[in-house]
């Protein structure tokens, strides 16, 4: 039974990797940057990075839900830009607070639209969201005539630059709240159970009386909501909403984070904690490379490689745990 021992070792390694692999990667990466680049080490830079990672991190929550149900959404970069320009342009008329609410509402509607296309018309998610990617971006351009919307409302700006007790950047706090809420939703509420059930076996979920279409529409809408929050914090941090520049490669970073975080592209139970740490890795990696003055084009190459690496790694993990073929 040497097969058996080998399998046990493989399983042990797989389980170890599943629990500690990501934090380990993060620590190693952090150490490398900290040693090689002095400016990386400062508390200021650390908090700043954490704050930046909230854009990817918050949207990754929604994307985790969507990928758990076996779909994915590549329209979110454009959605981010469209929501930011629409919401911020309303500020002069309705004020910052209502502006944020309307921005989130619009984001939910856009996500809902994706969900309807995917479920009721049974169009594969990637092709629906590919179309939406261009529609949203074009609408953002047309709406603003390709002129950035400058934001001067203090309430809105606080979402990107505000600091609690003058230390903790508000986006970090917001990210914490979002993850807390998402955890409660996924692990403590009936709806969370339904999302996991639909992800792990949609046919069994349907036989258990769950309306699979509605759950899928819900997760797309939730993704819209989280992208909306990212749109507000991101535009607040920049002080403006730029229809062309905002959300470039955003979908890419978010999907990388979720996949690197251990949620399988084929659906099933996902990991919010994994998405969170992976979002940190993706952001810190970019920032660290920036501080090391790595050419930004190299960074593009690196992010692409990380994505392929992340998917292969997941396959490897499931293979080691004996849950799939490599």
């Amino acid at each position: 039974m040497e097969d058996y021992r080998l399998r046990k070792t493989k399983q042990k390694f797989g389980a170890f990797w599943g629990n500690f692999g990501l934090p380990l990667i993060f620590i190693i990466m952090f150490a490398i940057f900290a040693i090689s680049t002095p400016s990386f080490r400062s508390t200021y830079n650390f908090l700043n990075n954490l704050s930046f990672s909230s854009y990817v991190g918050i949207a990754a929550i929604g994307m985790t839900f969507v990928i758990m149900t076996g779909n994915f959404d590549i329209s979110i970069g454009s959605m981010l830009s469209l929501v930011a320009v629409l919401g911020s342009s309303f500020i002069p008329k309705i004020g910052g607070a209502v502006g944020i609410i309307s921005a989130l509402l619009i984001a939910c509607i856009l996500g809902f639209l994706n969900g309807i296309f995917v479920t009721k018309l049974r169009i594969p998610a990637f092709i629906t969201t590919l179309g939406m990617l261009f529609v949203f971006r074009a609408l953002a351009f047309i709406y603003t005539n390709n002129v950035p919307v400058y934001i001067s409302d203090r309430f809105w700006l606080y979402f990107g630059n505000g600091k609690l007790f003058d230390v903790i950047p508000f986006p970090i706090l917001l990210m914490g709240v979002c993850y807390g809420a998402a955890y409660l939703l996924l692990r403590r509420s009936p709806v969370g159970r339904y999302i996991i059930a639909v992800g792990t076996n949609p046919r069994a979920a349907a036989l258990s009386g769950i309306n699979v279409d509605n759950i899928k529409i819900l997760v797309f809408t939730l993704l819209g909501l989280f992208v909306g929050i990212s749109a507000v914090t991101n535009s607040a941090n920049l002080g403006s909403a730029n229809p062309g520049l905002m959300g470039q490669d955003f979908e890419f970073q978010v999907i990388t984070a979720v996949v690197l975080g251990g949620t399988a592209l084929s659906g099933g139970n996902g990991s919010l904690g994994g998405s969170f740490i992976a979002a940190l890795i993706v952001t810190f990696l970019n920032n660290g490379m920036g501080l090391m003055q790595v050419n930004s084009y190299w960074q593009m190459v690196a992010t692409g490689l990380v994505m392929i690496f992340a998917v292969s790694l997941n396959k490897l993990k499931f293979f080691l745990l004996g849950q799939g073929e490599f």
Binding site: V301, G304, L305, V311
Partner: peptide
């Protein structure tokens, strides 16, 4: 050979090639 979803593969490849 790696069994990676074609969308993810080519999406990543697009980023890599653009950077290159």
């Amino acid at each position: 050979k790696f069994g990676v979803n074609p969308l993810i593969t080519t999406l990543s490849m697009a980023t890599i090639i653009r950077g290159a």
